[in-house]
Design a protein around this nucleic acid. Structure first.
Length: 288
DNA sequence: CCTTTCACCTGTATGC
DNA sequence: TGCATACAGGTGAAAG
């Protein structure tokens, strides 16, 4: 379940193994993997053949490889997507969706995705949020590690929302890169229950939550990303693993490391939320 | 316009 | 054993 730290690990792998190389051919093995490339598979391949891959970039959970001329290969790993760099003659993976070969005859880039929630496409670049980004993600907010992320603006917009704080953290148009795992971890660090109405948070509390978000994702990145079901694999096929450092996620009934109370699991948006019932008390419902 | 819900997808674990 | 069900959950379209 790649979130920002895992995607950043992949970006670094692409930067090392793919940037600077010339695309020779691209093959689409599953149409759903390029469903957001409207012109179709043939155009997808033709669009990148002969072009040189630029430095790998990322915003939140999206990755892209500039092709020059304001084009880029944009990728999202979804739930189970992997970008692998492997020898061209290596056995095709069971869920191989797209393969991109290079003119130098070296290792090829493969997009492998069991659940095909992820996707790849070639797109034009545009300008959004003070930065050149691929057109399809112009609506995605800056992530908290971007140089120009606006902390005060984030606090202001979050507090103006009529929703709960975990929903806001997961809203990629407000802040990008945060998924279910790190949202729970950040909320635990900030001692907030996910159901807390955003409008009741003070500015300093939002700043604390933002700091906690950065801390937990920095820690994950320093250890190479998190994985739970072995589906997440970095660009060279090496699995990232970080779950020992998680305080609450997936730890139902285990003692909270701060107060010893058993961690509880609650259903949320057809997902799971984990929290400490003592450190993060659920806000009382206020009658309307 | 803002917020919430649901479809999309498949492998693994669990229950009867 | 076999079948049904729950679960993992990011995204964006659709609904409210």
């Amino acid at each position: 379940m790649p979130e920002l730290p895992e995607v950043e690990v992949v970006r670094r792998g692409l930067e090392r193994w793919v940037s600077g190389r010339v695309v020779a051919r691209a093959e689409v093995l599953h149409p759903r993997a390029i469903r957001r490339h409207v012109p179709g598979a043939a155009e997808f391949s033709a669009r990148m053949e002969g072009r040189t891959i630029g430095p790998a970039e990322r915003r939140g959970k999206y990755l892209w490889l500039p092709l020059g001329g304001s084009d880029a290969i944009l990728a999202h790993l979804g739930m189970s997507g992997q970008l692998l760099v492997v020898e061209p003659d290596s056995v095709p993976e069971k869920h191989l969706r797209v393969r991109i070969g290079f003119a130098d005859g070296g290792p090829e880039l493969r997009f492998v995705d069991q659940r095909t929630f992820g996707h790849v496409l070639v797109t034009r670049m545009t300008h959004a949020g003070g930065r050149a980004v691929p057109e399809p993600i112009a609506h995605i907010a800056a992530d908290p590690f971007e140089r120009h992320f606006d902390d005060d603006g984030f606090a202001h917009r979050l507090r103006a929302r009529q929703t709960e704080v975990k929903r806001a953290l997961l809203d990629q148009s407000l802040i990008s890169g945060v998924g279910n795992i790190y949202a729970d971890e950040a909320l635990w660090r900030a001692r907030l229950h996910g159901a807390r109405p955003t409008a009741t948070l003070t500015g300093p509390k939002v700043a604390e939550l933002l700091a906690a978000t950065r801390e937990v994702m920095s820690a994950a990145l320093s250890e190479g990303g998190t994985s739970f079901d072995s589906l997440y694999v970095n660009v060279n096929g090496e699995s990232g693993y970080f779950d020992r450092s998680l305080a609450v996620y997936g730890r139902r009934d285990e003692p909270c490391s701060r107060c010893g109370s058993p961690i509880v699991r609650e259903s949320f948006m057809n997902r799971s939320s984990y929290s400490c019932p003592r450190c993060q008390p659920r806000p009382e419902k206020i009658a309307a």
